[in-house]
Design a protein around this nucleic acid. Structure first.
Lengths: 142, 142
DNA sequence: AAACACCTTTGAGTACACTTTAAGTCAACC
DNA sequence: GGTTGACTTAAAGTGTACTCAAAGGTGTTT
């Protein structure tokens, strides 16, 4: 039986989740995060909130926009009937992120070759006269 | 002997490189791209410009900011003496991008597990009562 | 009692990278 | 010879996601 009645005020909570107090209030305005209030109207958060913020940060980290995050939260509030829709959102986010990675790696390949080309120039293993464009062509030969 | 005297006006050039004419003029203001002018003062570009824009789009694609891109261009104009500095910029950009990919993949892993968890819920292979947090814990056991 | 952390609302400021508008010129097509 | 479309410039506007400031208040700690 986990007691789990630990309460965190916004300052402490902000440090725990790695966001600023500004951002936490902003997220609350936007409906992404909720908080409870003590008898003085001061916000407090629980361990469950830590996990929730952690999770939305994972979603954000994969490129999901705040607007989509809001939609996700709204769907979640509607219950299990929206699971297929939420699953689809996550799948799309995942697919998009994987496409981004693939593209990024293409760009990185060129960048890596440019670095190699610089090294070749400095070490004089690449003719001074050979342009990077010509150099790149070498890799395009079947 | 490549003649390579093909000239492109901004509209055509924009389509070739995949940028808007707005963006091309903006990049020119920012000193990232140059253009020549015909007798009427109308911009034109060459095949070399296509390659140059292609290259800066690779750099942008790896997350390099316009400000760094500007610095890179300035260094390039200073000649071969700045090659080590340019190489270092590219290396840092590459390292940063690779770190971003690694982080992204961490986030994606959680996202993938959430998708699996949804599937388990729908197929009733995961107890209705098991929270995603508890489910995630399974993967943290050595 | 001062310092501190929190509260409220509203609105402005920041950074980045475009994107569009406004007002006008110029050349080609029908 | 008029309309269309591409071009010019400088400047203002857009979207995203915060980030901070102002102004005034409450409660807890030193």
């Amino acid at each position: 039986m986990a007691e789990e009645q630990r309460h965190y005020r916004i300052g402490e909570f902000a440090k725990l989740v790695g966001l600023s107090t500004y951002t936490l209030r902003y997220y609350e305005d936007q409906g992404l995060v909720k908080s409870q209030r003590d008898e003085n109207g001061v916000r407090f958060y629980t361990d469950e909130d830590i996990r929730w913020v952690g999770f939305i940060l994972h979603l954000k980290g994969t490129g999901m926009r705040l607007n989509d995050l809001k939609r996700y939260v709204r769907l979640r509030a509607e219950g299990d009937a929206t699971i297929p829709e939420r699953r689809a959102m996550l799948q799309k986010t995942k697919d998009d992120a994987e496409a981004d990675i693939a593209e990024l790696q293409m760009h990185l390949q060129v960048l890596g070759r440019k670095i190699d080309w610089y090294d070749g120039k400095v070490e004089h293993t690449i003719a001074d006269s050979e342009s990077f464009h010509d150099y790149l062509q070498r890799f395009n030969d079947k």
